[in-house]
Simulated scan of single mutants.
Amino acid sequence: MTDARPPRLLFVCLGNICRSPTAEGVMRALAKRDGVVLELDSAGTGAWHIGEPPDRRMQAAARAAGYDFSDLRARQAVAEDFDRFDLILAMDEENVAALERLRPAGNDTPVRLMLSHGTSGRREVPDPYYDGGFDAVLRMIEEAAEGLLAQLRKER
């Protein structure tokens, strides 16, 4: 990621309505705050929510913390994403495995866990869709996004 164009990052979860749009929205806000230019998107490994806005409960937690990503719409990850993005950040191991099954032969785009950029010691961002915990998920993503942004600044 050392050429002149901005780094292109894709955040991925299962349905693209809770964790990955949150990561995209948080990263957009942090990059804007710090004057860092990035190309960002999010996607899901499943197709259940294509075209839908982020989960209303996730949006409520985000709004309370000062983020607005209500304009985002869910889409499904596709093989072409491996060519479009420099780094793909999955929210959990299940999504890493799904992405690896989608990876085109010969492609070496890194797929990493989002929380690998944080300091919490956790590996996976839990899915709040059924069990709740939207505020906790937001905090985990914020902390990892700060670490990711710091790493990107070092690499530029």
Rank of each mutant, 00 (worst) to 15 (best):
P53C: 02
E100C: 05
D41V: 07
R63Y: 00
F82W: 08
F85K: 03
R122L: 15
S70L: 00
R57A: 07
R103C: 06
A105V: 13
V111L: 03
M114P: 06
D92C: 10
A74N: 04
D34G: 03
E124W: 04
Q59I: 15
A98Q: 12
R84E: 10
G66T: 01
T119R: 14
A43P: 11
L72K: 12
R122I: 00
T45K: 10
H49A: 03
A64G: 11
S120A: 01
A47S: 15
R57I: 01
E94A: 15
P110I: 01
L40Q: 08
A64T: 06
S120F: 02
V111Q: 02
R123G: 12
V37L: 12
I88W: 04
D34R: 15
R103M: 07
E52V: 00
R56K: 08
R57H: 12
F69T: 02
A98Y: 04
R73Q: 13
A62K: 03
R75N: 00
S42T: 07
N107P: 03
G35C: 10
G51H: 06
D108G: 00
T109V: 03
V111E: 02
V96Y: 09
W48Q: 13
R103Y: 09
R33A: 14
A97N: 12
E93F: 02
V36P: 04
K32Q: 15
L89C: 15
A60G: 03
E100T: 05
P110H: 03
G121A: 08
D68R: 05
V36H: 03
A64M: 07
D34Q: 15
M58V: 11
A65D: 13
G35S: 07
A60V: 03
L115G: 04
R33P: 03
V37Q: 13
G46L: 10
L99R: 07
D41A: 15
A77R: 07
L89R: 08
E100G: 06
G35E: 08
E52Q: 12
T109D: 01
G44L: 07
L102I: 04
P104G: 00
H117P: 08
R84C: 01
R103F: 09
G121L: 09
L89S: 06
A98T: 04
N95G: 09
D83M: 09
W48F: 15
F69D: 02
R123L: 14
R75I: 00
S70Q: 01
V111I: 13
F69K: 04
L89N: 06
R101H: 12
P110N: 02
A62P: 05
T45E: 09
M114H: 11
A74E: 01
E39V: 15
R33H: 12
P53D: 00
M114C: 13
A65M: 09
G51S: 05
A105D: 13
H117E: 13
G121Y: 10
R63K: 11
